[in-house]
Simulated assay, not measured.
Amino acid sequence: MSFIVGVRNFLLKILYRIARPIIFLMDPEDAHYMFKKVGVFLGSNPITRSITSLLFNYEHKSLNTTVDGIEYRNPVGLSAGFDKDGELTSIYPSIGFGLAELGSFTGEVCPGNPGKRLFRMVKSKSILVWYGLNNQGAEKISSRLRGTNFGKLRVGINAAKSNITPEFDLQDSIDDYVKTMQLFKDIGDYYTINISCPNTQDGEPFVDKNNLDALLIAVNQNRVDGRPIYVKLAADLELDEINTIVDCCVAHKVDGVVLTNLAKPSHNQEFIKQELPYHKGAMSGLPLQRISTNVIRHVYRRTRGELTIIGVGGVFSAKDAYEKITSGASLLHMITTMIFDGPQNINEINRGLVKLLQEDGFKSIAEAVGSRNPLPKQKHEPASEEVKNVA
């Protein structure tokens, strides 16, 4: 069966390579909305969902994993930022996703940033994003999604602060997050508190510990039983800033972190400089790959695996996915690989993960998490006999 799926994926890959130059003639945002319409149609009825699943889906029991009490059929998920208004949940399982994070959703309607907002950086294998949290607002979206049966798809609700003013007010900002949480209290499987959008008018004010403390107190007051809460971090933080946020998450008993959001070109050397098309925005894909994996390794060791980690950034192959998992990530998010490699690459990553697990003798994703990132010994742990003898 795996061989047949491999042949299927190979043929689909060739077809996408033929079609991609034509797709890339379109404006990136126009292409996004066109494919969104296609996805809505494919998810609209059982026949098109079944055909899509036959072409793109892949199942294997070793990919089944349970994280913070939530059962996932596989760890490969869609990142927030693609389905900003939560319109495509019916089709995601058919193209191989085990989870999808919707949004970001904000308390108020957000038009996003003006002008051109999406740029391809083909040689850097990246998308420069300057959207600015455009979405229909939590009230309208939650009203539409309420009562939806997501089936075997696990859904994350990504909550961000409304991007409608350059002025930061702490209480107004907290109320904005809480509004989204309350409106989605009966929708989805987990929350992500996005404190890291790089394209907003007032920056990233919740890097400040006092602000973050106040936000997480309010978040905890609005917890829903059985609904884990994760915090999404920026890619461009200094080590002490990462430590402050992570330690704060542990102190407030947040369930985990999403690592990481997009990378700002001003803080990144992982892209072809001549290809940068715009002076604003932040990059997805390959420029983020090494940064996010390094942050995953650091946070996993600092928290000794106490926090769940969702790894995001530059996952184009099963090897990339497995590196993040063995570094400490329990789940993964991705978008850019669909754009550059085609939607069939989602199930090719899942198929490759099965092989990599088998090669390492693991029977499940959970066994592989952090397996190549050994935790540091506690300072109070006694030295081994060998060390004592050498001393």
Rank of each mutant, 00 (worst) to 15 (best):
F119S: 10
F119N: 03
R120G: 11
M121P: 00
M121I: 01
M121F: 06
V122Q: 04
V122C: 01
V122F: 02
V122D: 11
V122T: 09
K123C: 09
S126N: 03
S126K: 00
I127P: 01
I127H: 08
I127K: 06
L128F: 03
V129E: 12
V129R: 08
W130A: 15
W130S: 15
W130K: 15
Y131F: 15
Y131M: 15
G132Q: 08
G132D: 06
L133C: 12
N134C: 02
N135G: 11
Q136P: 09
G137C: 07
G137K: 03
A138N: 08
E139D: 13
E139G: 02
K140M: 13
K140N: 12
K140D: 11
I141L: 01
S142L: 04
S142D: 05
S142K: 04
S143L: 07
L145P: 06
G147W: 04
G147N: 00
G147K: 02
N149E: 09
N149T: 00
N149H: 11
N149D: 14
N149F: 05
N149R: 00
N149P: 00
F150K: 00
F150H: 00
F150E: 03
G151W: 05
G151F: 01
K152N: 08
K152I: 04
L153D: 00
L153S: 04
L153P: 06
R154V: 02
R154M: 01
R154L: 04
V155A: 04
V155Y: 02
V155S: 06
G156H: 07
G156S: 03
I157S: 05
I157Y: 03
I157R: 05
I157G: 05
N158L: 09
A159S: 01
A159W: 04
A160K: 09
A160P: 11
A160N: 07
A160C: 11
K161Q: 14
K161T: 13
S162G: 11
N163E: 01
N163K: 03
N163Q: 01
I164Q: 13
T165H: 12
P166I: 12
E167M: 12
E167Q: 14
E167F: 12
F168S: 03
D169R: 07
D169H: 11
D169I: 07
L170N: 14
L170T: 14
L170I: 15
L170P: 13
L170V: 15
Q171F: 10
Q171S: 13
D172E: 15
D172M: 08
S173M: 03
S173T: 10
S173N: 10
I174Q: 07
I174C: 11
D175I: 00
D176H: 07
Y177G: 03
Y177R: 02
K179I: 13
K179N: 13
T180Q: 12
T180D: 10
T180N: 09
T180V: 15
M181P: 03
Q182F: 10
Q182K: 14
L183V: 10
L183Q: 14
L183G: 08
F184L: 11
F184Y: 12
K185Y: 01
K185M: 05
D186Q: 08
D186V: 06
D186F: 08
I187Q: 11
G188T: 06
D189L: 05
D189H: 14
Y191V: 08
Y191D: 10
